[in-house]
Design a protein around this nucleic acid. Structure first.
Lengths: 123, 123
DNA sequence: TATACCAGTATACTTTAGTATAGTGATATA
DNA sequence: TATATCACTATACTAAAGTATACTGGTATA
């Protein structure tokens, strides 16, 4: 990150916003209540709509449908309509979606330290 | 991340939730509209309430106050009441708060690739 | 023919996040 | 004495995110 020590004497709000934009993108992509559960479920194996609905407990079909659509639009999830009868629809992570794993893992590592720290503070 | 290829044969929703918890923590910590702008402003230099209010354009004192409090509770921000008159209050990132920089930078790198990709898709 | 499963959609509602606007008490400055 | 600044807080509101519940059309199975 750009810091004062990096000898950036002063920063403008515009510079700051530009800096934040790509971070915002990622947070918007994996933020919200159901995105991570979906991405992680799909990182284990490709799954059909109903399978996801059953495995991600608490999700409604409305949310599952909406989030899968958003993830597909953003190129993270691939939707494959198989010509079985009745049709089944298989969802999977794209290579791009899989590449998010590294980011999630980095976040997770920090988060685990945070959990420890918070625990040690509260007792 | 734990994947099917890592030969985790099957996963339970409980395992999955446990896996996600620390990630959720971080997203809750830096998510929302104003957390990143605040953290990044403070990464440039320690600042007082009014300075932050002026530099983070669009923020209301209510949100600034609330978010600073939350960040303080979570150990990311330090609040220092200086005995000037009238009192000024200086906010700074704790060492722990600064350690988030690496995480944010990792997110940002992925996000920049994402921006490029999205741009190349839309034309 | 009746029932059930699949992959969703529709409508209405609640809850959470964020905004708008005004005001507080303490101190300093003209 | 009047006005301004600092560091907020209070109250009321709007917008966004998520939930509850019911339903659709197509196909398969008993």
């Amino acid at each position: 990150m750009k810091t004062a020590e990096n000898n950036v004497a002063n920063y403008t709000p515009t510079e700051c916003k530009t800096f934040i934009l790509p971070v915002r993108d990622v947070l918007d992509l994996i933020g919200g209540k159901w995105r991570l559960p979906i991405i992680i479920a799909l990182s284990f194996e490709n799954q059909r709509f109903k399978e996801l609905e059953r495995k991600i407990e608490g999700i409604t079909p409305r949310m599952l449908s909406k989030e899968l659509k958003d993830l597909e639009i953003n190129g993270l999830v691939y939707r494959d309509v198989l010509n079985t009868s009745p049709v089944s629809v298989e969802y999977s992570l794209t290579e791009y979606g899989k590449s998010l794993d590294k980011v999630i893992e980095t976040i997770r590592e920090w988060g685990m330290i945070h959990r420890k720290k918070i625990k040690s503070l509260s007792y």
